[in-house]
């Protein structure tokens, strides 16, 4: 492979990782934008999502990489799997908000954040105890189509990941910008008390934010499985830290920022891993997080958090 091929290949990899991180970052940003809460449970909602996707695919009789689907069956399986996964993680997110975080809404200090850490731990250990510690083979029903661009390879799965992530992000943007509930969500993020006084049911808005964020985390977990061909109870931590870094890099609370941040982090991981060694990828990502927080806390596109009076 020439240097350029290598570059191209890492760009392809980075964009796929980036799509995954962007979806994850959106969940952090939606919740933070309204509640100013770092939702650590998001880390493992993502992980649980990949297992729900795994289970759904297994219901179709898909286990390893052997069974290949094409045409309508493939589209159907993917559609059902994404829908089931996203609904399920969305419901988990809503449950966390409704029963564990809402009672703490007006409590000052770190109580809510500590609760999300606890929830994250609970999810992590539930999967560990029920599924086991070994990583699971993730079915991949996609036909092994690929095209060579020079020495680099672009596979069908990457193209698919890009398309799905783009569709989801477009749908979210449409929702936030063009629907009444989306507008209420933006209003709540800018001034929760004023929004409430306009008649916005803030509880419903917050629930929606958790639902959407968690559903996107579920989609992201499914993409993880499709991309890496495995899943494990451990995947939440690293992906979560990258997703959060992406949200901060783009400007936390900022929806387009989360998407941009995700792509950048994906590319950084791909190229950084290539240049410095994948063992240090975490250190690079983390260094970005600290540098952004220290020198540009508003991120690339501006931090958008509630004006609290």
């Amino acid at each position: 492979m020439t240097t350029f091929d290598l570059f191209l290949q890492q760009a392809i990899n980075g964009l796929s990782l980036g799509a995954m991180y962007a979806l994850l970052a959106l969940g952090f940003t939606l919740v933070y934008g309204i509640l100013e809460l770092i939702n650590f449970s998001h880390f493992n909602v993502f992980m649980v999502g990949s297992f729900i996707a795994l289970w759904t695919l297994q219901q179709f009789g898909l286990f390893g990489q052997e069974t290949i689907l094409v045409g309508l069956p493939l589209a159907g399986v993917l559609l059902v799997t994404f829908t089931v996964t996203m609904l399920a993680t969305g419901v988990i997110g809503v449950g966390i908000e409704r029963f564990l975080l809402r009672p703490l809404r007006d409590v000052k200090g770190p109580a809510a954040m500590i609760t999300t850490i606890g929830v994250s731990y609970i999810l992590f250990n539930i999967i560990l105890l029920t599924v086991g510690a070994d990583s699971k083979n993730f079915p991949n029903p996609l036909p092994p189509l690929q095209i060579a661009i020079g020495g680099a390879v672009l596979r069908l799965r990457e193209v698919l990941i890009w398309i799905i992530a783009t569709l989801l992000m477009l749908a979210l943007t449409f929702f936030v910008q063009r629907t009444k509930l989306g507008r209420a969500m933006r209003a709540t993020a800018q001034d929760p008390e004023a929004a409430r006084m306009m008649g916005v049911e803030v509880d419903r808005v917050i629930m929606t934010a958790f639902f959407l964020g968690s559903a996107l985390a579920g989609a992201s977990g499914l993409i993880f499985g499709l991309y890496y061909n495995f899943t494990s109870f451990l995947i939440g931590f690293n992906a979560g830290l990258r997703g959060f870094t992406a949200a901060v890099l783009g400007g936390i609370g900022n929806v387009p920022g989360a998407m941009l941040g995700g792509l950048i982090i994906g590319l950084v991981e791909a190229f950084g891993g290539q240049l410095i060694g994948s063992a240090w990828a975490d250190v690079i990502i983390f260094a970005i997080l600290v540098l952004v927080l220290v020198f540009r806390p508003a991120g690339l596109l501006g931090r958008l958090a509630p004006n609290r009076s």
Partner: peptide, 23 residues
Amino acid sequence: PTLRLRGDYLAIVTLGFGEIVPI
């Protein structure tokens, strides 16, 4: 560098430090 940050950011930065040292 990090103690100037808002409290919730500090949490995530320390989480990262905690991860880097074992790495």
